[in-house]
């Protein structure tokens, strides 16, 4: 857990926005329902997936490497993805 800060909020565990750039983390859960959850799954972002945090974007979002794919998430979405260190 050395690379992760605990999340300020009701849910326990860490979230993507707390992960450092360059860290590889494993997705533990996604607190989003509906089409956005499906879209994230299509991009490979689903529980159990290994994700590399490539950087912070303008606006506070995160740039992720999932396999060879690259996806940008906004801050609010990234804050709903629970992760644990790989």
């Amino acid at each position: 857990m050395s690379r992760l800060r605990p999340r300020r909020g009701p849910a326990p565990g860490a979230v993507l926005t707390a992960a450092r750039s360059g860290a590889t983390v494993r997705v533990t859960g996604i607190e989003i329902e509906g089409p956005v959850r499906a879209r994230l799954a299509e991009f490979g972002l689903r529980p159990g997936a290994a994700v590399m945090v490539l950087g912070r974007t303008a606006g506070g979002g995160r740039l992720l490497g999932i396999g060879a794919g690259r996806v940008a998430l906004d801050h609010a979405t990234a804050a709903r993805v629970g992760v644990q260190p790989e």
């Binding site: 950087g55 740039l63 490497g65 940008a72």
Partner: peptide, 14 residues
């Protein structure tokens, strides 16, 4: 990480 990633660290950075 690829060259694209290194560019993106700047191109999308705050």
């Amino acid at each position: 990480t690829t060259v694209s990633d290194r560019i993106d660290r700047w191109a999308t950075a705050p």
